[in-house]
Design a protein around this nucleic acid. Structure first.
Lengths: 128, 128
DNA sequence: CAGTATCCGTCTGGATACTG
DNA sequence: CAGTATCCAGACGGATACTG
């Protein structure tokens, strides 16, 4: 899958990062400064360790977050956004802005017409 | 899945649309004006009828594209972006811009160190 | 503390074939 | 022309259990 979302490598790269669950929350949590694994888990909410670990790995590999290991009896690891990672904010803002627009567009048309069938409108992947 | 990507409904709404394969290309194709199903299929490229149909349905339902049926022996249908749909452009630009940045960030670190494996940079979900 | 290893269900996309 | 109906394989995310 994936083929080409917009026929543009950079667009795809962005989608590649933002298109996955939790990434947005992780970035948001890290915008306030560096956090340890546990703190991140707390900040993000319901994310499973494995998921957080996987995402963090991807982000680290892409150079969007840095991983700093702090040796010591209780090994600690600090994650922090890189400059590139911080750039996510502008995109998030643009998306949120457009998101509001399309949210309204959907409502006005048939997103939530009255009460009958409903569903199929906003549903998508539901929410587990 | 999906839970919360950024703890923000509008952000999620945007992801919901952009996060799916082909949507970007469809928007791009429609930016030049209305197109018929077949033309869209041509413009997008390798997309399967069913996929195009599904995406178009979603976009229509969300009020991002309009569907105009032109009766006649050969029934024709014209698809066109709505004002909300056109707003996609700003987001796409922001994403492309950031995409370039993270593409470089990834390369510099370990995305494409030299020549060996490569692939792991732009790959995402591999390629089937 | 900070992960990693496994296992499994769900959802999505793709190919093919058929219809108004 | 413009879709829709099926079927299928695989990717992805989630929960649980275990380790340095």
């Amino acid at each position: 899958m994936i083929h080409e979302r917009a026929g543009c490598a950079s667009f795809e790269a962005a989608m590649d990062v933002l298109g996955k669950p939790w990434t947005g929350l992780i970035f948001a949590a890290l915008e306030g400064g560096s956090l340890r694994f546990g703190e991140l888990r707390e900040a993000v909410g319901e994310i499973a360790d494995r998921m957080l670990s996987v995402r963090l790995r991807e982000l680290d590999q892409r150079g969007l977050v840095t991983r700093r290991v702090i040796e010591g009896p209780p090994v600690r690891v600090e994650y922090e956004l890189t400059a590139a990672g911080r750039g996510f904010r502008e995109v998030a803002d643009a998306m949120r802005k457009w998101g509001k627009v399309i949210l309204r567009a959907g409502e006005a048309d048939e997103g939530v017409p009255r009460a009958t069938s409903a569903t199929s409108a906003t549903r998508k992947r539901s929410r587990a």
